[in-house]
Design a protein around this nucleic acid. Structure first.
Lengths: 131, 131
DNA sequence: CTTGACTTTTGCCATTTGGCGAATTATACT
DNA sequence: AGTATAATTCGCCAAATGGCAAAAGTCAAG
């Protein structure tokens, strides 16, 4: 962890705590994290673990993944909140389909997409033939 | 961290590593995490920190926040790829399978599980017949 | 059975994290 | 000024993380 990112994150947390406003002890009570630790985090002497960030986020009014991103635990564009689109090809997996498949064993799951790809290649060759 | 959640997460990671498939050393090389540490995580002797999870996610084909949720670092509220974790009794949906399927249209996705259920009922009737 | 090449596990250690309690430093109130 | 009172910081410690190197396992070819 670079010194700058520690200080940066600490600065942000402190700024947010002041803005609410809360004292270290109050935030400590709300988040179940010791005030001394919070203080060290704010002035960049310690780097907060994921579980600490999680505890602190809500009392400070941060989105849960926001602090993770700031801390570098999650990559910058996290389309996690609500209905963002998939980074890959844009399709969404239907929840019902997902649920049904999830109940199958891993082998069956893989067999399923194996069969799918076979069917697709057959379909492709058929249409090619046709024309 | 409860013993069960450690073992659970380890089990999932190991299962996924085997499915890819990779050795501990290969995964170690790809993720820049020592093989010994990865081994201990898989068998529940260590709990992976957020940065470890982040490094490991991509080589294993997990969405970046998926492992965070499984580890309890993030709350399980965002069904981006549908429920990859399993509050309901069943198994989990393999990330690779989910990704491939998500690229298909909704019609195709439903057709896939339609075919699956047909194959299952055929298999069932065959085994019944046999005895 | 034995050798040789991998893969996984174990022992040991440095580094970090995070808590508790005691100092220190603001902030009020007489 | 002087002294409560609250807020922050410091010192020290236990527990956990994660790496390295050596010790087991595994498994195929000879």
């Amino acid at each position: 962890m670079s010194d700058t990112s520690r200080n940066e994150l600490g600065r942000i947390i402190k700024q947010q705590r002041m803005a609410v406003p809360l004292t270290l002890q109050e935030l400590a009570a709300m988040s179940e994290v010791s005030a001394s630790h919070l203080g060290r985090i704010e002035r960049g002497e310690r780097f907060p673990s994921a579980s600490i960030l999680r505890k602190v986020a809500q009392p400070l009014g941060f989105e849960e993944d926001e602090l993770f991103t700031l801390a570098g635990y999650l990559s910058p564009q996290s389309p996690r909140v609500a209905e963002a689109h998939h980074p890959y090809s844009g399709g969404r997996l239907d929840p019902y389909v997902a649920r049904v498949l999830a109940e199958e064993s891993l082998d069956v799951q893989r067999a399923v997409i194996g069969i799918l790809s076979i069917l697709k290649s057959i379909a492709k060759s058929i249409t090619k033939e046709k024309r």
